Amino acid sequence: MNFIKVYTLTALFSAFTLIQATHANAITAPPLETQVKQVAQWFTGLFDNSQQVATNPSIPLITLSSCSVALTNTNPVTGTENIYLEQKSINRFRLYSFSQENSAVNLSIRAFDTNYSVTGLCNRPESEHTLDSSKVLATSCNLQLLWEPTDYIGNNSPNGCPTSSGGKVISSVTVSENGIDSLDKIFGANGNLLFATPIEFRRVDSIPEPSFTLGILAIGFWGTSKTILRKHKQKSTVSEESLFNCD
């Protein structure tokens, strides 16, 4: 009889735990509109990979900063957060746009006209955080971010984004409240993997509070080792549309 009681209690406890976990998973995911704002805010601010460099000096130190921007010469798109990205020491400038798409957050990344200078935009007064939409290239590279309890995970496998040499870049990213882990796999036109270096960005400052006029911000990411940098300078093969490369 005691064994029956113990078995019954154990079964009831297991069933209760399973119901609790299932219920929690069912109600935890926030609305998609909230996800767009949350992941964008987690991208906001100043990041670098100094902790990773300390344990692997072959990887260059990269700093990322971003700020929310308004686009001029265009009608605003409801539910879309537009963010300007500036990356150093490997210079890279991009417009990141977060929006809703089906059951995920869509991240669209576009480059600028070569003659359009936006360096230091985030250091200017907030009233000057604007970009001329006519200077933003139409071609974009996209990636979907899926919500998890503590982070957002995305990749654009297997198609990736095309490179100027006929190859492609397949990008993976995990975004958490205080860090961004990214990996770009760059393939040549023959399908061979040229290089792939994971980069671990960590937040340098606290998450800024979203404001009424600024909206939510984002950061771009990607880094390469010194060997990759030398190859990249020699080849200039990665296209403007790839997600996280440092061209």
Rank of each mutant, 00 (worst) to 15 (best):
residue 190 N to R: 13
residue 70 A to P: 08
residue 59 I to C: 00
residue 156 N to T: 13
residue 219 I to F: 05
residue 233 K to S: 12
residue 145 L to R: 01
residue 134 S to A: 11
residue 146 L to K: 06
residue 131 L to K: 11
residue 141 C to I: 10
residue 126 E to N: 14
residue 123 N to E: 08
residue 52 Q to V: 12
residue 188 G to R: 09
residue 43 F to L: 10
residue 180 I to T: 05
residue 63 T to G: 02
residue 152 Y to F: 14
residue 114 T to G: 01
residue 36 V to A: 04
residue 239 S to I: 08
residue 39 V to R: 08
residue 198 P to M: 05
residue 175 V to H: 00
residue 33 E to P: 04
residue 245 N to H: 09
residue 192 N to S: 15
residue 237 T to M: 08
residue 107 L to D: 02
residue 36 V to F: 03
residue 23 H to F: 15
residue 242 S to D: 11
residue 177 E to T: 02
residue 21 A to L: 15
residue 56 N to V: 02
residue 129 H to N: 13
residue 99 S to L: 01
residue 207 I to P: 07
residue 65 S to P: 03
residue 131 L to M: 13
residue 247 D to T: 11
residue 210 P to L: 13
residue 227 T to D: 13
residue 53 V to D: 06
residue 216 I to N: 13
residue 134 S to H: 09
residue 229 L to Q: 14
residue 160 G to I: 06
residue 138 A to E: 07
residue 190 N to D: 15
residue 231 K to C: 12
residue 221 F to R: 00
residue 115 N to I: 04
residue 208 P to F: 09
residue 116 Y to P: 07
residue 167 G to E: 00
residue 67 C to K: 15
residue 103 S to P: 01
residue 78 T to E: 09
residue 229 L to C: 10
residue 215 G to S: 13
residue 58 S to W: 00
residue 49 N to Y: 14
residue 29 A to K: 15
residue 14 S to C: 06
